[in-house]
Design a protein around this nucleic acid. Structure first.
Length: 456
RNA sequence: GUGGUCGUAGCUCAGCUGGUAGAGCCCCGGUUUGUGGUUCCGGUUGUCGUGGGUUCGAGCCCCAUCGAUCACCCCA
């Protein structure tokens, strides 16, 4: 047994997987560009201080830290070292960390470049992120996020368009049974205020976020454990029991929460978003108002989104929301932003499970020229150049092995055409072109071959 | 961080109540040497994850360890 391997939660992507991944990425990228977003890349590493405190306590612990170079113990925290307090110690021996998401590095970029940006600034970013989580189904330690964010605009038109992007991309990828769940953090803030537990809003939201998993009773139990009292539970239960369509839910919430200004604002925002989405229409998405949606990331303040595929056992494949003051932490307050993120790896897993990848993605090389020897090689090389210049992916088998082996290579690599040139073809200036799928073979000139393969 | 399941040829796995390892696929060669995928014949492959223990004897039982996987927490 060999001992080589790769770190837990990471993966190699072989050619056939990469072809499919690129298919996903290209559809997402094209859609982002159709909506006016521009590309951005940031470094894999950020300063540790840039990342800490943005993802909640739980999130901070999942940040991969990078050990300093050189004599990194020189500045180590002596107290932490002697107490073997690894967490505390890490801050004195790690100045950098791998990025945990794309939104925070984006906010950092915006602040650093505030003088040169055209506002509102719309960017997209497709890069890997790292989380020191324990891997399981659909959860990796290195995975790709595909983000689109806009900062410098309060307009809810952005929210509406981002919902359209979810719908456009996932529909184009062939998904049909998925739900875009929408909520607004302001409602949760308002609810917490109403029951007099503003400072414990996170505890509350984390508990009610589990409604579909543990049921109403489970949620109430968790809330009780966390010290909420009966009258508080009463109100929360009312909210969680709200049923019906989007407008009914909104009306009921209004009746419950209209005394709280924040909540009122949140309800107005939601109404606006839903009415516009309805007006513009969706392709395949089911747009839902999910009052239990909370989302763990600390920085969200307004609308929040999550996308789930309904017929596959898998966590959410996309997320997003509005954050009013993410740039404020880096010294530029008042810049509201909103963004979404596609989890490419989960989308890949879902599409794989549902067999949604098109068949023909595998074929890259279109035609293989067989190799009989040096004379033929000399004859073929110029032809090959001509074929490639016509935009046709072509290759020559690099050595003159048995013909059967060369055909098998084409077959294994799913190359659809094989061009054979031997003595008689050279004499007549022709090519024997075989269609591996049908088994048919015909004799063509080079120009006929190019015409044929260009139109296929 | 907590818990469950599983580690046998390159891959997927079998191996009965403990008696010194198998199948299919893949790969390689052949089927008279310019035609793959289909048929037929032949061949290679393993310190049974690692370390220890029980036993006359362990792939199988016990302990430890590492790895994979699933669930919880949280999240894409």
């Amino acid at each position: 047994m060999s001992q080589i391997g790769i770190p837990k939660g990471t993966r190699d992507f072989g050619p056939e997987v990469m072809v499919r991944r690129n298919y996903i990425f290209s559809i997402i990228r094209k859609c982002f560009e159709r909506y006016g977003y521009l590309p951005l890349e940031t470094p894999s590493m950020e300063n540790l201080s840039t990342l800490t405190g943005k993802y909640g306590e739980e999130g901070d612990q999942l940040i991969f830290k990078v050990l300093n170079n050189g004599d990194y113990l020189k500045d180590a925290d002596d107290a932490a070292l002697s107490q073997r307090d690894a967490r505390k110690l890490s801050f004195s021996i790690c100045d950098r960390a791998l990025r945990y998401d794309l939104t925070v590095p984006f906010a950092r970029f915006v602040v650093m470049n505030k003088n040169g940006l055209v506002l509102p600034f719309k960017r997209y970013q497709i890069q890997p992120v790292w989380r020191a989580d324990r891997p399981q189904k659909g959860r990796y330690r290195e995975f790709y996020q595909c983000d689109a964010d806009v900062v410098g605009s309060d307009s809810l038109v952005n929210e509406v368009e981002l919902i359209q992007i979810f719908d456009d991309v996932l529909t184009e990828l062939g998904l049909s049974n998925f739900s875009i769940k929408i909520n607004n953090r302001k409602l949760l803030t308002g609810l917490a205020a109403l029951i007099g537990a503003s400072e414990r809003m996170m505890d509350m939201t984390i508990a009610i976020d589990k409604l579909d998993k543990v049921g109403l009773e489970g949620v109430e139990k968790e809330l009780l454990d966390k010290g909420f009292n009966a009258s508080q539970l009463e109100i929360i239960r009312k909210v969680l029991s709200i049923e019906g369509g989007i407008s009914e839910k909104l009306e009921t919430m209004e009746a419950l929460l209209s005394s709280v200004d924040v909540a009122k604002k949140g309800l107005e925002e939601l109404k606006y978003i839903f009415s516009r989405v309805e007006k513009v229409g969706v392709k395949k998405a089911k747009v839902e108002l999910d009052l239990t949606l909370a989302r763990g990331l600390n920085y969200y303040t307004g609308a929040i989104f999550e996308v789930k595929v309904n017929d596959v056992q898998m966590g959410s494949i996309c997320g997003g929301g509005r954050y009013d003051d993410l740039t404020g932490i880096f010294g530029w307050p008042g810049m509201s932003g909103v963004g979404i993120s596609f989890g490419a790896d989960r989308i890949y897993d879902v599409m794989n499970e549902l067999k949604l990848f098109p068949e023909e993605l595998g074929a890259t090389t279109k035609v293989l020229f067989t190799n009989f020897g040096e004379n033929e090689e000399l004859f073929i090389l110029p032809l090959l150049r001509k074929v490639r210049e016509a935009g046709i992916a072509a290759e020559i088998y690099p050595s003159a092995v048995k013909l059967g082996k060369q055909f098998k290579y084409a077959d294994d690599k799913k190359i659809p055409w094989v061009a054979t040139i031997g003595e008689s073809e050279m004499a007549n200036n022709t090519i024997a072109l075989k269609d591996l799928k049908s088994g048919q073979q015909e004799v063509l000139t080079i120009d006929q071959l190019i015409t044929k393969l260009s139109s296929n």
